[in-house]
Amino acid sequence: AQASVVANQLIPINTYLTLVMMRSEVVTPVGIPAEDIPRLVSMQVNRAVPLGTTLMPDMVKGYA
Results as ranks from 00 to 15, higher is better:
56 M>D: 15
50 P>K: 09
56 M>T: 10
31 G>D: 01
39 R>F: 05
1 A>G: 05
43 M>Y: 10
2 Q>D: 08
49 V>Y: 02
54 T>H: 05
34 A>P: 10
6 V>F: 02
11 I>G: 00
55 L>M: 09
16 Y>I: 05
25 E>K: 07
11 I>T: 01
61 K>M: 07
47 R>W: 10
10 L>E: 14
42 S>D: 11
9 Q>S: 10
21 M>G: 03
58 D>G: 14
41 V>P: 04
15 T>V: 11
11 I>C: 02
57 P>N: 12
50 P>N: 09
61 K>E: 12
54 T>S: 08
62 G>Q: 14
19 L>K: 05
27 V>P: 02
34 A>I: 11
6 V>G: 01
37 I>W: 03
27 V>C: 03
49 V>T: 06
3 A>W: 06
14 N>E: 11
30 V>M: 15
29 P>C: 03
46 N>M: 09
64 A>K: 03
15 T>Q: 14
63 Y>R: 02
57 P>K: 07
53 T>N: 07
44 Q>N: 07
33 P>C: 03
59 M>A: 07
55 L>D: 00
39 R>G: 14
10 L>M: 13
46 N>Y: 15
47 R>A: 11
63 Y>T: 05
44 Q>P: 05
19 L>I: 14
17 L>P: 02
53 T>V: 09
15 T>D: 13
31 G>F: 02
51 L>Y: 13
35 E>I: 07
10 L>Y: 15
59 M>G: 04
20 V>R: 12
7 A>L: 04
10 L>D: 14
34 A>Q: 10
31 G>Q: 03
43 M>G: 04
20 V>L: 13
28 T>R: 09
60 V>Y: 01
25 E>D: 07
55 L>R: 00
54 T>M: 07
17 L>S: 00
55 L>A: 00
58 D>V: 15
49 V>S: 02
56 M>A: 05
37 I>M: 13
40 L>F: 02
8 N>H: 06
33 P>V: 06
54 T>V: 08
11 I>Q: 01
24 S>C: 03
15 T>F: 13
34 A>H: 06
30 V>L: 09
56 M>G: 05
35 E>V: 14
21 M>T: 04
31 G>R: 02
63 Y>W: 10
46 N>V: 11
10 L>R: 07
19 L>G: 12
3 A>M: 13
45 V>D: 01
29 P>I: 05
53 T>R: 15
7 A>Q: 00
37 I>A: 14
52 G>V: 01
8 N>A: 11
40 L>E: 00
61 K>H: 15
26 V>Q: 15
22 M>T: 02
25 E>S: 08
33 P>G: 05
54 T>F: 02
43 M>W: 04
50 P>S: 15
45 V>M: 06
52 G>L: 05
45 V>E: 01
29 P>E: 11
60 V>D: 00
8 N>I: 07
28 T>D: 15
11 I>N: 00
58 D>P: 06
56 M>P: 01
62 G>C: 03
44 Q>M: 13
61 K>I: 14
1 A>N: 13
57 P>H: 14
38 P>E: 15
19 L>F: 14
9 Q>P: 00
33 P>I: 08
55 L>V: 05
14 N>H: 14
44 Q>K: 09
5 V>G: 02
2 Q>Y: 08
22 M>Q: 01
7 A>D: 01
19 L>D: 10
25 E>T: 08
28 T>C: 03
44 Q>V: 06
27 V>F: 02
9 Q>F: 10
21 M>V: 05
45 V>F: 02
4 S>Q: 02
43 M>K: 09
36 D>R: 07
21 M>L: 11
21 M>R: 03
5 V>T: 13
24 S>F: 07
34 A>R: 07
60 V>M: 09
59 M>N: 05
20 V>W: 06
35 E>Q: 14
18 T>K: 05
25 E>Y: 08
12 P>M: 09
29 P>H: 05
11 I>H: 00
46 N>G: 13
44 Q>Y: 08
5 V>A: 14
25 E>W: 05
47 R>F: 13
11 I>K: 00
43 M>F: 13
35 E>F: 11
19 L>C: 04
11 I>L: 08
17 L>A: 00
46 N>E: 15
1 A>H: 11
13 I>P: 08
50 P>C: 04
61 K>T: 14
4 S>V: 02
33 P>R: 13
51 L>M: 13
64 A>M: 15
49 V>Q: 02
26 V>Y: 12
48 A>F: 15
8 N>L: 07
7 A>K: 00
15 T>R: 04
11 I>R: 00
37 I>H: 03
47 R>T: 07
29 P>G: 04
25 E>C: 03
14 N>Q: 09
25 E>H: 13
30 V>P: 14
59 M>T: 08
34 A>L: 05
28 T>K: 07
61 K>S: 12
11 I>A: 01
29 P>W: 03
46 N>H: 11
24 S>I: 12
13 I>Y: 14
58 D>N: 14
45 V>W: 01
3 A>N: 09
29 P>L: 05
44 Q>C: 03
30 V>Y: 10
12 P>F: 05
28 T>S: 13
17 L>Q: 00
27 V>T: 12
31 G>T: 02
30 V>T: 15
59 M>S: 08
58 D>W: 09
2 Q>G: 09
46 N>A: 12
48 A>T: 13
56 M>S: 10
60 V>P: 01
5 V>N: 01
9 Q>G: 06
40 L>I: 11
28 T>V: 10
38 P>D: 11
14 N>M: 11
58 D>R: 07
4 S>I: 01
21 M>N: 06
58 D>K: 06
30 V>S: 11
50 P>L: 05
18 T>N: 09
27 V>M: 05
59 M>F: 11
62 G>T: 07
1 A>P: 14
14 N>V: 02
24 S>D: 15
23 R>N: 08
61 K>V: 13
55 L>H: 01
34 A>Y: 07
59 M>W: 12
61 K>D: 13
57 P>F: 06
60 V>L: 07
53 T>I: 14
40 L>Q: 01
31 G>P: 01
52 G>M: 09
60 V>R: 00
42 S>L: 11
61 K>C: 04
22 M>G: 00
58 D>T: 11
9 Q>M: 11
58 D>H: 13
15 T>K: 09
4 S>W: 02
18 T>F: 04
57 P>C: 04
17 L>I: 12
26 V>G: 05
52 G>F: 08
28 T>W: 10
27 V>L: 07
38 P>C: 03
35 E>H: 08
14 N>I: 02
28 T>N: 11
63 Y>S: 05
55 L>E: 01
14 N>K: 13
48 A>E: 15
4 S>H: 01
17 L>R: 00
39 R>C: 04
26 V>K: 09
10 L>S: 08
51 L>V: 13
18 T>A: 11
6 V>A: 04
48 A>P: 09
24 S>E: 09
24 S>Q: 06
26 V>R: 05
46 N>S: 15
